[in-house]
């Protein structure tokens, strides 16, 4: 059993070496496939980050009637903080609101003057709320409006923002869906091309396999070296792909970050190196081995 295994591996390696000229095409196609798959992975991660980034820019504010005591507002805040979808809540007291209002309108004399004439602070306290997913705002709004705190709330600026929020959510959904569909199509095409290339290079195997059968070789003894050959191509392709992708990321990463701040694909690459390597080698080896297996399967007839 062990001698057989040794023989199979040895003969597979010899095959790969002797076919090295023909297998350039196979390796090239495998590299392409691996790069496409890695690229799609990055694309999906990128859109994910970009969508999250955009969504984090959206928030809603609930304004409380002027006479609402701070205690009640803090209770509402606490209540909201208990909900899963809420990522952050900021309490802006009436004083703080006034301060920042003054700050903003520092140079506007009219407003300054009119504020000075007022005896009381006209601004309402508010809670600034962010959620994981823009779609969840509607739930928060109805919780605030129709819940036990409904009476405390003067207005929520959700209605004005609703259009933008929904649009953003739609875009996020379609980008994600589109990305996944595109990925599937591209991966499918890449796999098809790989299979066909390997099948073509294995065309000469028909005669060999017939002869091997006639001198008494069993199916798996015939098949296995071809699979080993495919595995070798897959591994080589994975190494080459890494050699292409890594410099490419080094090049792209700073440029991408300069116009999409907060997105650092180099950091992503480095922190997920092992997973990415596993995927690349996995894809390469699986495709190489599986295509060999399928390609010679139909010659095993004698």
């Amino acid at each position: 059993m062990i001698t057989a295994l040794k023989r199979i591996i040895k003969s597979g390696l010899i095959r790969a070496w002797r076919n090295r000229m023909v297998s350039v095409a196979t390796v090239a196609v495998l590299i392409l496939t691996i790069c496409v798959i890695t690229g799609l992975l990055f694309f999906n991660v990128l859109t994910d980050v970009a969508v999250k980034e955009l969504q984090s820019k959206v928030d809603i504010s609930a304004y409380f009637n002027v006479e609402t005591p701070e205690d009640s507002i803090l209770k509402v805040k606490q209540e909201l903080a208990g909900r899963n979808e809420v990522t952050s809540i900021e309490y802006i007291s009436r004083e703080k609101a006034l301060e920042s209002f003054k700050e903003i309108n520092r140079d506007n004399d009219v407003i300054k003057k009119s504020l000075e004439q007022l005896e009381d602070n006209p601004l309402e306290a508010s809670l600034n709320i962010k959620v994981v997913n823009a779609r969840q705002y509607a739930g928060i709004v109805s919780f605030l409006e129709s819940g036990p705190f409904g009476g405390l709330i003067d207005k929520i600026n959700f209605r004005q923002k609703e259009g933008v929020i929904m649009k953003l959510d739609n875009i996020a959904q379609s980008v994600k869906k589109g990305g996944i569909i595109l990925s599937f199509i591209l991966v499918f095409v890449a796999i098809l091309v790989t299979f066909n290339t390997i099948r073509l290079t294995m065309h000469t195997a028909k005669e060999e396999i017939g002869i091997m059968r006639l001198v008494g070789a069993s199916d798996w003894f015939i098949r296995a070296p071809f699979v080993v050959e495919g595995v070798v191509y897959g591994a080589i392709s994975a190494i080459f792909s890494l050699g292409i992708i890594y410099p490419l990321i080094l090049f792209i990463s700073p440029r991408l970050e300069s116009f999409l701040p907060g997105i650092n694909i180099l950091a992503y690459f480095q922190s997920n190196l092992f997973m990415l390597l596993a995927i690349q080698f996995g894809v390469g080896i699986f495709l190489g081995a599986a295509s060999s297996l399928v390609a010679i399967g139909k010659y095993l007839k004698v």
Partner: peptide, 9 residues
């Protein structure tokens, strides 16, 4: 190869 097929050492 013919000998490997029958598992000779």
């Amino acid at each position: 190869f013919a000998m490997e097929v029958i598992g000779m050492d």
